[in-house]
């Protein structure tokens, strides 16, 4: 998994910061974004192996990130993280397109395992 590329999008800095620190420790290359717009700009230029995105964000939200990623790179896996209250709705709406869902707080170990599975397929 050395150098595999992960993008993390969440409008709270702490989520990206923590994810980056934890994932870099496992040898991933990680870029973080605080909102969807620059993230999609970046994705247009470069492919990432896994995109971890928050569902509810101002402006471009997780749904739109998902649609764009799938259009650009069908094989890129998307992991959606969301506030617990939105989980059911999210699962219902996005069934099939998303590799995994996690309610926040997300156990980092579980997120890592999910990324691992995404990359194995």
């Amino acid at each position: 998994m050395q150098g595999q590329k992960i993008m993390v999008i969440d409008d709270e800095k702490i989520v990206g910061d923590m994810a980056k620190l934890a994932l870099e420790q496992d040898g991933f290359y990680v870029e973080t974004f605080l909102n969807g717009e620059p993230a999609l700009e970046r994705l247009k230029k470069e492919k990432f192996d896994v995109v971890v995105t928050d569902l509810k964000m101002k402006g471009i939200d997780g749904m739109e990130v998902l649609r764009t990623v799938k259009r650009l790179y069908p094989e890129t896996k998307v992991i959606m993280i969301t506030a617990f209250a939105n989980l059911d709705a999210a699962i219902e709406a996005l069934r099939g397109d998303v590799h995994d869902f996690f309610p926040k707080p997300v156990k980092i170990k579980e997120l890592k395992a999910s990324i691992q599975r995404a990359l194995e397929r």
Binding site: M18, P105, I108
Partner: peptide, 13 residues
């Protein structure tokens, strides 16, 4: 537990 470093959490939590 959740703010202990093992979880990604946000302010909503």
């Amino acid at each position: 537990d959740k703010l202990g470093g093992d979880y990604l959490f946000d302010i909503n939590y």
